[in-house]
């Protein structure tokens, strides 16, 4: 196949890919390096990091707590639904599954405004922020778990377990639960990473005291030096990158956050 395409085409194709990949990686790398430049002096220092952590420590903590809550709540809502979609489908279940994916196609700003208009009396409540983020995380939880359950013949495996004399508890512990572990871990990583980096919905639903890092970056960028901005970006990346590496390892296909960011 390659011979027929010719070496020239081969070279052009890879050159384009390498250029795009470099353009994707170099700017964030530059931003992180920028962080090590002290605000005034032309020397390397971790001062910017200290400043960011002192100023935005609360918001980092809030982000972590919010992401943990969003991950847990998305799983609580998404996993049972995914189980039903895959194994107990009923009339209308396919439509509900499609409805759950609709937010992924909707712009975050519009959804945020809708949530604000819908719950005017709750304005500033962090639950609205969590709920808004969850519109973009629950679909992933549902999709990841439902896809796995659809690809594993769980019904048949449960039947096998029954013919081998396994009763309910043993079946759940040895057959159903182990098969759910992987998709649930995958889903929680995705949801956590999404919540951590989310901007479009969070920016409008956040309050100055309850501002996740993804939204707080805007304030940092507009009111601080390049070094501080770089440090904030680096701290943001430090939170997101491990999750992404784990995602890549768990799932061979790259993951796209789409509307979520």
């Amino acid at each position: 196949m390659i011979e027929r395409w010719g070496r020239k085409r081969f070279a052009i194709g890879w050159t384009m890919t390498v250029v795009i990949a470099l353009m994707a990686v170099l700017p964030p790398l530059a931003a992180v390096l920028q962080a090590f430049r002290a605000p005034q002096a032309e020397q390397w220092s971790p001062g910017s990091f200290q400043y960011v952590i002192e100023t935005y420590g609360g918001c980092l903590l809030f982000s972590l707590r919010l992401a943990a809550f969003v991950a847990l709540a998305s799983l609580v809502i998404g996993v049972p639904a995914a189980y039903a979609f895959a194994l107990h489908p009923f009339r209308g279940s396919a439509a509900i599954e499609q409805l759950a994916a609709v937010p992924l196609a909707l712009p975050g700003v519009s959804v945020a405004i809708a949530v604000i208009v819908g719950y005017a009396q709750l304005r500033g409540n962090w639950l609205l922020l969590a709920g808004g983020q969850m519109l973009y995380t629950v679909p992933y939880a549902v999709r990841v778990v439902a896809n796995t359950l659809r690809n594993v013949p769980l019904r048949t495996l449960e039947d096998v377990a029954r013919t081998l004399g396994a009763h309910g508890v043993v079946r759940f512990r040895h057959v159903v639960a182990p098969l759910l572990v992987r998709p649930v871990v995958l889903a929680s990583l995705i949801v956590f990473a999404l919540s951590w980096g989310e901007f479009n919905v969070s920016f409008l639903l956040a309050t100055p005291t309850q501002m996740p890092i993804g939204a707080a970056l805007y304030g940092t960028y507009t009111s601080n030096s390049g070094a501080v901005s770089g440090a904030a970006t680096a701290i943001f990346l430090a939170g997101a990158l491990p999750l992404l590496v784990a995602l890549q390892l768990l799932e061979r296909r790259p993951f796209d956050f789409g509307q979520g960011v």
């Binding site: 039947d159 029954r162 013919t163 004399g165």
Partner: peptide, 28 residues
């Protein structure tokens, strides 16, 4: 079925994908 003391071989074999061959054989 779990109380009938049967052995069932499925067409697709339906081996438990998360278990080794040994664990599969020992499941019953």
């Amino acid at each position: 079925p779990e109380d009938r003391n049967i052995g069932f071989v499925f067409q697709s074999y339906a081996l438990f994908p998360h278990m080794t061959a040994e664990e599969n054989v020992g499941f019953g």
